[in-house]
């Protein structure tokens, strides 16, 4: 266990080098967010006051996007998938096959430390931004919502990591995984509720999406926070999320064991 704590420490030191980079990233990311919020305000401005869009007031809609930004800072993978793919391609994983260090856990520690630093740095611009939007910001619906949000965000982070890890393992089979990663990312961007709340889609489509793991990466935790999920659905949703995490873990292990058989340890 101690060795993984050590990895965590190294991860924190390594990512601290990029703190200014992170700050710029987080601040620049707010520009399109602000654009989207302005567009929504204009849409609400053209409606009678107090009107809702799919059950969202303007405040709830603004909060939705801010929470997406927050969940994203906490869970999104930064460079992890590229680094894993590069490790495989360049033969860097050979050392992990010889040492008593599990590559999966090693990567997971690096992911956790990266997220911890990124969130801390990103909190500065996001908090300033949230302060400017404070009149449109809503608090968690109640204690259950707050706890449910915390639990589902945690599992969303696990799912994000598993997704990135498994797709990066494609590097065992193909030379350049970047296109596959971008395609998966595009799917995730829309199907996880990043671009807009999934309830804005035709109901049949929303239902269909809820059968995939994507909404549990982002839409579900945010909906819980906003109190749009009743207790029964919350329990069911958390259970579904847990099932996806277990399935994802199984898939990651399976793909790794198949991939390692094809591994040619390029570059020695």
């Amino acid at each position: 266990m101690r060795k993984y704590l050590h990895v965590l420490g190294i991860g924190i030191q390594n990512t601290l080098v990029y703190r200014v980079n992170f700050l710029f990233r987080a601040a620049l990311g707010l520009i399109p967010l602000l654009g989207t919020i302005f567009v929504w305000r204009t849409i609400y401005g053209g409606k009678p006051p107090g009107d809702h869009v799919a059950g969202y007031s303007l405040a709830a809609m603004t909060s939705y996007y801010l929470l997406v930004t927050f969940v994203d800072a906490l869970t999104a993978v930064a460079e992890d998938d590229w680094q894993i793919a590069a490790d495989i391609k360049d033969g860097n994983i050979s050392q992990f096959l010889l040492k008593p260090v599990d590559y999966f856990l090693y990567r997971f520690c690096l992911y956790v430390s990266g997220r911890a630093i990124y969130t801390t740095v990103a909190l500065v611009p996001v908090a300033i931004f949230a302060w400017f939007q404070r009149e449109h910001l809503v608090a968690p619906a109640d204690l259950t919502a707050a706890l449910g949000f915390a639990a589902s965000t945690l599992m969303a982070g696990l799912l994000q990591f598993l997704l990135a890890y498994t797709s990066a393992l494609l590097a065992f089979w193909v030379l350049d995984v970047s296109t596959f990663i971008f395609i998966l990312f595009a799917l995730e961007y829309i199907a996880s509720g990043h671009l807009f709340p999934l309830d804005l889609l035709p109901p049949a489509l929303t239902k269909l999406l809820m059968l995939t793991p994507y909404p549990y990466l982002c839409h579900f935790p945010v909906s819980v926070y906003l109190g749009r999920v009743n207790d029964a659905d919350l329990a069911r949703g958390l259970a579904a999320q847990a099932v996806w995490v277990v399935l994802g873990f199984g898939l990651a292990k399976f793909v790794w064991s198949r991939g390692i058989r094809r591994y040619s340890a390029a570059g020695g």
Binding site: V39, I43, K47, V53, F180, I183, Y189, I190, L200
Partner: peptide, 28 residues
């Protein structure tokens, strides 16, 4: 594949606009 990736992102933007206009007739 790169052509597919770029086209996919463009499709996403169009889908976003399509979804917005499901709930409004005009933006500004």
């Amino acid at each position: 594949l790169w052509i597919v990736v770029e086209a996919l992102w463009f499709g996403l933007q169009l889908a976003f606009m399509g979804v917005l206009y499901r709930h409004t007739d005009s933006i500004g």
